[in-house]
Write a protein that binds this DNA or RNA. Structure first.
Lengths: 147, 147
DNA sequence: ACTAACGCTGACGTTAACGTCAACCTGTTT
DNA sequence: AAACAGGTTGACGTTAACGTCAGCGTTAGT
């Protein structure tokens, strides 16, 4: 009767996972040491489930955003409350909100950098059109002039 | 009167800068080694100008965004072309645009994480109100079982 | 003159996040 | 049986980004 779980095993070996996400096996084992992944075993071999696969995706996204593995773990643990006490839930809620706030800040900084770089692009384009117009017939002179 | 204005010197000592930005002196010297800052000297002592101060701000912003010092240096060098050759300008322009594109991606990922966390907050809040009313079992993992 | 504050230069230590390598097991193919 | 592909566990190496510490030189105040 308790065959509620789908017999369709959505399991991955370590190489499957590492190819899909383009990471090394060493990295996956390292993440396991750090508690970011928790595959079970078939004998000695690791077997990753759907959950681990999803978490790995989140870890890598976190990394692309510049978070440390410790920070990422903290964020992941927010999804894993299962049956926390009320106080634990409250703490998690506060942490989530802090994280959200800092992410908004980060977003704003990114916006700033983007507009900075866009202005820089405009300037470079201006320099390029100007440089191309003067066709530099005397390149040698210029080269010699600028020591 | 070719007197340079040393009266209100826009110069900073290492401790002034480190206090303003809350970094260590070691860090400032390290950034100098890496070519991110280029203070001149009064005898042995470093003297930072407005330019260095601005660059330091950009470096720290870049760090908050998760960039390595090498990447930050590349971005800073985009502001420093002065009078490059045409090909160099073209390269810089392309690099700037790539950087802008990747920043847009990063921004989108941040948005994704933000909405993930906001949903998690909603779920946690739901669990809290329910928990406070009665001692019912909670199932955050099922509630979050996105796909 | 002495000390305290501030600054400098090495040089070694540290942490995070892996890479690399050796040695081993294990099932499958040749 | 031998080799091979894929997996495992240590253990040590590496890089980035600093921290820390020792030793030394200059002013400024007492």
């Amino acid at each position: 009767m308790p065959t509620a779980a789908p017999a369709r095993s959505e399991q991955f070996t370590i190489t499957e996972l590492r190819r899909e996400f383009d990471v090394s096996a060493r990295t996956l084992r390292f993440y396991e040491d750090k508690g970011l992944l928790t595959p079970h075993r078939d004998g000695q071999a690791r077997i990753y489930g759907y959950r681990d696969r999803a978490r790995l995706g989140l870890v890598l996204r976190g990394k692309r955003m510049g978070f440390s593995l410790a920070e990422i773990k903290e964020m992941l643990d927010l999804y894993n409350l299962k049956d926390g006490q009320v106080t634990q839930l409250e703490v998690s809620l506060e942490k989530s909100r802090e994280r959200i706030a800092s992410l908004h800040e980060q977003r704003n900084e990114i916006d700033d950098v983007i507009s900075d770089l866009e202005r820089a692009c405009d300037v470079i384009e201006g320099m390029l059109t100007e440089k191309r117009r003067e066709q530099s017939p005397c390149r040698l002179d210029e080269a010699l002039a600028t020591e």
